[in-house]
């Protein structure tokens, strides 16, 4: 207990005595955590949209012309055998035309001139809840494609793939930039602590004479590293919130078409602070690592 007080007091003294250095370390770790946080916010929101869209995925299975009624019934059974299929609805020629005319009333004459079978009959399939993913819909499409009597399948392949690539690219850039900045902040925290360590050589010698163990001596510097990292992450969260409120929130609302733009969940915020603390801890460990002859 008394040792904890000692650790925090020493850390406080180190912060005060090396304000400039500590500030630089703090700002770098804040920037790196801010970057990670930004990508995280964007990713979380895009993920949200993708999930919403995945829930709404509908697959249209168009049928060949001139199938007999019992052939259609068999086809329906075959399709229903797939576990991915949640609900299946048959859309006859007539239903298709009615639905079309409902949307484009002015083209009534054109449709009438093409006759009863102007639009193909189809099955409208919605996915079973457990398969409402891009993977689910693609695997179902593969299985149905080859069935005799099916002429074409549509489920918005293009944008689903584009979204997939987009999120993956974003994650990649985010990880690279985040990792680079994280390494930088580890290095800067390590250097800050190393410098304090050398400037405290006199005190550390006294501690050894008083019988302090190496662990005792290192404690305050570990606390310092963790505090730098966690404080940096805290600052980054404040910055993130400001950026979010003044920018992402406004722009995002338009882009996301009705899906509410969300900030990070409390768990994610906690995780970011935890990440910051870990960065600081690693930095401190690195600066304290050399064996006792060499470390101070």
């Amino acid at each position: 207990m008394r040792y904890l007080i000692y650790c925090f007091r020493e850390t406080g003294a180190n912060f005060l005595d090396y304000r400039g250095l500590s500030a630089v370390a703090l700002v770098t770790s804040a920037l790196s955590m801010l970057c990670v946080g930004l990508f995280f916010v964007i990713y979380v929101n895009i993920h949200e949209v993708v999930q919403a869209l995945e829930n709404e995925i509908i697959m249209d299975i168009y049928l060949d012309e001139g199938l007999a009624e019992n052939q259609i019934l068999i086809l329906e059974r075959v399709i229903l055998l797939n576990p991915e299929v949640g609900n299946l609805e048959f859309v006859s020629h007539r239903d298709a035309i009615e639905a079309y005319l409902e949307r484009y009333q002015e083209e009534e004459a054109l449709v009438a001139s093409l006759g009863e079978q102007a639009l193909p009959a189809s099955f409208m399939v919605s996915l079973a809840p457990t398969h409402r993913t891009v993977a689910g819909v693609t695997s179902l499409a593969k299985k149905i494609e080859g069935i005799k009597g099916v002429s074409e399948i549509q489920y918005g392949q293009e944008w689903i793939q584009a979204f997939g690539w987009g999120t993956r690219l974003l994650m990649l850039i985010g990880s690279i930039v985040g990792a680079t900045l994280a390494l930088a902040s580890i290095a800067i925290v390590a250097n800050t602590i190393r410098l304090t360590l050398f400037n405290r050589k006199h005190d550390i010698d006294i501690l050894r004479l008083l019988g302090a163990t190496e662990a005792f001596i290192r404690g305050p510097f570990l606390v310092e590293g963790v505090a730098l990292g966690a404080l940096g992450a805290g600052v980054s969260l404040i910055l993130l919130k400001i950026i979010f409120e003044s920018f992402i929130y406004r722009v995002g609302d338009g882009l996301m078409q009705g899906h509410a733009v969300a900030f990070l969940s409390p768990a994610a915020l906690g995780a970011l602070v935890g990440c910051g603390a870990c960065l600081g801890f690693v930095g401190a460990i690195l600066s304290l690592r050399p064996t006792r002859k060499a470390w101070v």
């Binding site: 050894r208 004479l209 008083l210 019988g211 302090a212 163990t213 190496e214 006792r292």
Partner: peptide, 15 residues
């Protein structure tokens, strides 16, 4: 070096 702290903790030294 690792045994030293325990010994010194039981000693007082007026420098």
């Amino acid at each position: 070096q690792s045994a030293m702290p325990a010994v010194r903790q039981r000693m007082g030294f007026i420098f």
